[in-house]
Amino acid sequence: MVNTEVTLSGVKLSNPVIPASGTFGYGYEFSELYDINILGALSFKGTTKEPRFGNPTPRIAEAEGGLLNAVGLQNPGIDKVISEELPRLRKVFRKPIVANISGFSVDEYAYCCERIDKEEQVEIIEVNISCPNVHNGGMSFGTTTEGASEVARAVKSVTKKPVYMKLSPNVTDIAAIAEACVNAGADGISLINTLMGMRLDLRRRKPIIANVTGGLSGPCVFPVALRMVWQVYERVKVPIMGLGGVSSAEDVIEMMLAGATAVQVGAANLKDPYASMNIINRLPQVMEKLGIDNLSEIIGGAH
C-alpha cells in the first residue's frame, strides 16, 4: 500500500488533490456524481465582501489545450457564503475546506478573512491576489511585492488559520512576490492563477470575451505553472499548492517533484466532471509504477 498523505501547514490531507477555486463551485454539482469526500480538500469559489454578479457575457472562449475565462469573481458575498453555502457544503463534505478570499482593498481582504476565521471546517485560507478579470482589485495586489505583502500582513493579523497567498503568473519575477508574502507572514503559496490572454471573433472582428481579456487555463499552461512552482520552491521554505493545467496523476507527481506539497486541479473539472476523482483513483497505481511509496517524500525531489 502506497501512502498518499501530505500535510499543509499542519493540515493533514488524505491525498494532495484539491479542486481549484472557481472550477468546483461549492461542490454540489460534483457531489451529485461522486462522493467528493475522496478529495484531499476543496477550494471554494472566490468570495468577496459584497455579492458580485461578475462580468458581462460572453465570459468564456476556447483555446488550443485550454480555455479563457473572464467570470469576474461572481459570488454571493461573504455573508451568504457563511450562512448558506458553507452549511450546505458541510452536509456533503467532511474534509478540509480551503476558503478562497478576494477583495478590492486591503481592508476588504482582512474583513472577509476575519469572518471566515470563525468557520471551523475552513482549515486554510487562500488569498487571491491574482484575479486577472476584475479592475482595481485582485491582480493589482499581486503584481507588486509591496501590494502582496500589504495584503498578507493585514490578513495574518486577523486569523490564526494558515494563510496561502495565491499568486499571478502575469509578473516578471514570481519568486520575488512569493518571498515578499512569506516575509509578511504568509504560511504558504498557491500558484499559478490564470495567464492573461484573449481571442478574437473573426466574423465580428471583435474580442470573443465581453471583458476583452480573460485568464488562460488548462493543459496549455502546465509547463509555465511547473516552471513557476520550481522557481518559488527554490526561493521560499513554505509549502506550495501547485496548480495550472494539472490533468492527470502524472501531472500531480510532476508538480510535487517541482516543489508542490499539494496540487490543485482546475480546468480539468470543467471538461470532465470526474477528473479530480479519476486523478485520485489513479494516483496509487502511478506511484507504484514510479517506485514511490510515500508521496510526501517526493516534494521538491527534482531539485
Binding site: 472557481g22 472550477t23 468546483f24 463551485g25 454539482e29 460534483f30 469559489k45 454578479f53 461578475g54 457575457t57 460572453p58 465570459r59 468564456i60 472562449a61 480555455l67 475565462n69 467570470v71 461572481q74 470573443i208 473539472n269 470543467l270 471538461k271 466532471p273
Partner: peptide
C-alpha cells in the same frame, strides 16, 4: 444560448441576470 465552460453549473461562465437574481444558463 450562451458560451459555456462546463455546461453543468460549476464555472459560472454563462450567468445572466433575471428578475429573480443571477441564473446560470446551463444549469
Amino acid at each position: 444560448e450562451e458560451r459555456m465552460g462546463c455546461g453543468f453549473g460549476a464555472c459560472m461562465g454563462c450567468t445572466c441576470k433575471t428578475k429573480y437574481g443571477s441564473k446560470r444558463i446551463c444549469k
